[in-house]
Design a protein around this nucleic acid. Structure first.
Lengths: 214, 214, 214, 214
DNA sequence: GACTAAGCGAGACGGTACGTCGCGTCTTAAA
DNA sequence: TTTAAGACGCGACGTACCGTCTCGCTTAGTC
């Protein structure tokens, strides 16, 4: 039955190397056009207002061409998100724990607050709860990547003596990023550098090593 | 067009005192039946699968009767959420800052983690970004209420000497609740008491008063 | 069950003379307003587009006030038609059969071709087939009245020697008026005096007395 | 808006020869099922009671499949009518003018008086006034076809010396058919052979050639 | 070079739900 | 009692997208 077993991530990685399928090859260009149009429509209409039919029409592409690559519109939207997230650069080692934490939060604040990523995330988040595959993909590709980054960051902070040795990286991650999404999704308060700064200071205090007892 | 200017909150509270409207009154009973059925369907199908037609059918009510009160299904769903949130009891003064913070976070963790509120919030959050009226209502009725509670809690903590005098209640609120929604909506990690505990401890340290310099 | 047994003609003739009902009396003015608005709407929208709700709104009257007087919109429309038909004056005796026939056809051509009667009849005719009471009323008040007129006209024509003694008045009526409605309802050809003239000439020939055999 | 420019007659005959449209072809079988079901429902419920939803349900077809072919229920009903009218056979040359006229009128009397065509026409006639396209189609496909037939009939009658040379075929047509529709739509009198006979005799007299002056 | 298995555009198709309109009935408070 | 106002159950409307399914090309391999 299952026509194509499109993975929830990249469109049909297939059997990797070798075994080049016979018949006409899927056009990579078409793929890019679809993704680009999807990006545009996500900005204009949100995930809610995104429709395969609109994408197809504006991309000058048949609906089947889209369905051949992505199972449904949520998967298409996710593909766009992952595409963007993957472009988020790794955070550099700055030698200063405060600076590194700030860089981490500011990166999130910036991408969610001033690019279409924020809009897309707002629209996508409800689908994450509905579609387990989508959720899994999001967690594997975004949450756990950030988890890893924070873990390394915390490690370095501990090594430098800036953070308590028992600092739980998961808790740190949640304290750093939770408020960001809370503003984006629920309270609607602005995502700006002052907010990031305030948040980082609190987290630093929360995990500051105990002062040496005199 | 504009038949009735159904408010996004309760259905048409009107001018309250006096000026009893002419014409047949809206049945309060009907209202309750609709809300109850909506609650049930939200549990069964999620916000995604909620349908005005299903609500109407199960409530034994005409679609128009629903549309007369709520503009669309999102507004109806929100009405249910607000209805439930409003029933969330005020947190009592416990005399202990740690206990009060824990009670606050645990309340959120419990309602979002083990009632249908979690499901509903997951489904609703995307609509908050789309519909400004909905968002406003949510902020007025939920966010700012919690803001107030945290502010009082922080005040008491400062008075008791448990929190630094410059503790920013908004930041505290975001650190306490942000991670809860992050788990609910994005990371999918469990909402349990251990998580609440860990979070509260971190926040307490973040806003602990400076130790007296000897 | 039957709330009001509104007759299909005039609104609620009630118990005739005497026995003035207790309570507030129905306003005759209201009646006129409703009829006038109905006339207007019939012109603007046709019977098809006529709605009780529009009538009520424009007349500044409650729907119930209309339903109290007429069973439904068809009956209301018919009331307007009958109202108009009744105003059609009796044809005078002209002393000339050709002139009388022409006057008869021309009257129909004029009222159907250049007043709203034509529009109304077009819209009403489908309902005549559906609603037997309506049909009966129409036949009693319009068809048979015309029948009578034609019968007298034919009688006079026979007396004058202009028509054969065995002239069937019903056939004459149908030949005179059938083509008029055929144009109005089906062929869409113009209703003008030339058409009337041509038609009358044919009918005159059809019923001309046999020439005296020499 | 304008999805397909469904013609008011047959559903999208397109450019006929060549230029086979791309995409999946419309199923001719589906078309026939819909028309058949429509015919049935017209008999059962009349045009008034005809519903796209009922047609779709009974035909086992999606509503969209119907709307893709006909703009609305009136157009669908007309399609059925035209379909039936088109099946009305051409009148044969009988060699006798009286017989030919009788055959013509009797054909109309029969189809309108004893098949569902009568019912359908009653229901449709109001829509003819509303929808110009519908009206045009009806005139092209029904009125003018009958016009042509009568014209030929009249010609032959003149050639045979049965009709006056100046017989106006349009007037003849209207005198023959007008009374039939008058009975069907307005007076409700029976459509029978006696009526047809009487009518034809009158028309024959109306267009009888002048007797040779001795 | 012919064969053949996709890819591709177009668009028909069965569905589900939408939000609207108008019906005719009913309830309410005022006149 | 009538009236204006308007809630109510109901049935149908015509539309929007969904995801699937033909069609008749076009394009790339493999034989």
């Amino acid at each position: 039955m299952a026509t194509t077993e499109a993975s929830p991530t990249a469109p049909a990685p297939e059997s990797e190397t070798q075994a080049r399928r016979r018949g006409r090859q899927r056009s990579a260009e078409t793929e890019q056009v679809i993704l680009q149009v999807t990006r545009e429509l996500l900005v204009e209409c949100g995930v809610q207002g995104l429709t395969i039919e609109k994408v197809a029409a504006r991309a000058g592409v048949a609906k089947t061409t889209i369905y051949r690559r992505w199972r449904d519109k949520d998967e298409l939207a996710l593909a766009v998100v992952l595409d963007m997230v993957e472009q988020v650069v790794k955070l550099p080692e700055l030698g200063d724990t405060r600076a590194e934490l700030l860089a981490f939060v500011n990166a999130a604040v910036k991408v969610l607050g001033s690019t279409l990523m924020g809009r897309v995330m707002q629209g996508l988040v409800s689908d994450l709860a509905t579609d387990p595959e989508l959720a899994q993909a999001f967690r594997d590709r975004v949450v756990s990547v950030r988890d890893g980054e924070v873990a390394r960051l915390v490690e370095r902070g501990i090594a430098r003596g800036d953070l308590r040795p028992d600092t739980n990286p998961e808790t740190a991650h949640e304290l750093l990023i939770g408020p960001v999404y809370y503003r984006l999704l629920l309270s609607g308060r602005p995502l700006d550098r002052a907010f990031a700064k305030r948040n980082v200071e609190a987290v630093l205090r929360a995990f500051a090593p105990d002062p040496p007892t005199a």
